[in-house]
Design a protein around this nucleic acid. Structure first.
Length: 296
DNA sequence: GTCCAGGGTGAAA
DNA sequence: TTTCACCCTGGA
């Protein structure tokens, strides 16, 4: 007898570094030893397991009338190896070893609204806390992620009670905008990266970094190069960007270098920087990356 | 107990 | 261009 709630997808993907390292705030590893993640995909509660060159998905709860296979496959984005300009990355001394280490890392195409709320929430916070806040929003709304209208009825005061702090009015603000302009998100999808970014940055609470994250991780605009403090340090350290360059200028410069594959360049640099700092926290060197191009 | 930083942003100096 | 407040939490 087969379990109707289980299905397989023939994709070879690094779940940990794709689902659970900063792009998305929906996933929780179910145990330290497994390679299984649990979370809501749209409003369907599932577990995803990384098996030998394929994924096994099980529906646990929530909305069930969904074409999970094709929608989840779309969510997982595209294999970067086949994207235009990938050789720019594999020929890069700094990035090449990271690709070798994380060959199955992907950039997601997340549901837009949830991604927007997530990254506004991320400002000056940390991963566990962001995930906790996003979970609270679902719990408040019968385990469906509240749409803009529902966010408005929750209201700023309640959001502050939940711990969103200074981010609460920002979330209300964009909920109002989207609630008033029904097609806003679809329009952003249609226009160029640059126009979409200009539009997002006009919204109070969304600056350059958050706009870039949203465009890269849910709008499939891979020209985007989000610069946070880790990536900024990486660019300065490995690419000799000026020591006092500001994040926006650094992002411009990086986009200029990596063009339409910038978001992947950013992910690899992010992972490299994280590993390097983790290694130094252990008091050791990161041997795998101790190559001649490593400056200082 | 105090201090500080955590994938930022916006307003004022 | 630089500085600072904004919420809240956990660790030093």
């Amino acid at each position: 007898m087969t379990n109707m709630n289980k299905l397989k997808i023939e994709l070879d993907i690094d779940l940990h570094n794709t689902l659970d390292s900063g792009q998305s705030f929906s996933w929780q590893k179910i145990s330290n030893t497994s390679n299984t993640y649990k979370g809501y995909f749209k409003d369907t509660l599932i577990t995803v397991s990384e098996l030998n060159k394929c994924l096994e998905i099980e529906i646990i709860g929530g909305v069930k009338n969904i074409n999970l296979k094709s929608e989840f496959e779309n969510y997982l984005g595209r294999d970067p190896k086949y994207l235009d300009g990938f050789d720019l990355l594999s020929n890069d001394n700094i990035i090449n070893p990271v690709i070798k280490m994380y060959p199955k890392l992907r950039i997601l195409k997340q549901p837009k609204w949830e991604c927007i709320v997530g990254f506004i929430t991320s400002s000056c916070s940390n991963l566990p806390r962001i995930k906790y806040h996003m979970k609270l929003l679902r719990e408040l709304n019968n385990y469906k992620f509240p749409n803009p209208y529902e966010i408005l009825s929750i209201g700023e005061i309640k959001l502050r009670e939940l711990g969103f702090g200074f981010r609460a009015p920002y979330i209300i603000n964009i909920a109002e905008k989207i609630n008033n302009e029904n097609i806003y998100l679809d329009e952003l999808d249609q226009i160029s990266y640059l126009k979409a970014r200009e539009e997002l940055v006009r919204v109070k609470g969304i600056g350059r970094k958050i706009a870039d994250c949203i465009l890269a991780y849910s709008f499939d605009k891979l020209e985007s190069f989000p610069v946070d403090r880790h990536v900024l340090n990486g660019l300065i350290r490995w690419y000799r960007f000026p020591k006092k360059i500001n994040p926006e200028k650094a992002s411009d410069r990086a986009m200029n270098k990596w063009g339409n594959i910038s978001s992947y360049a950013q992910q690899y640099i992010f992972h490299r920087q994280r590993l390097a700092s983790r290694a130094s926290n252990w008091g050791g060197e990161h041997k795998k990356f101790a190559i001649s191009s490593d400056i200082n």
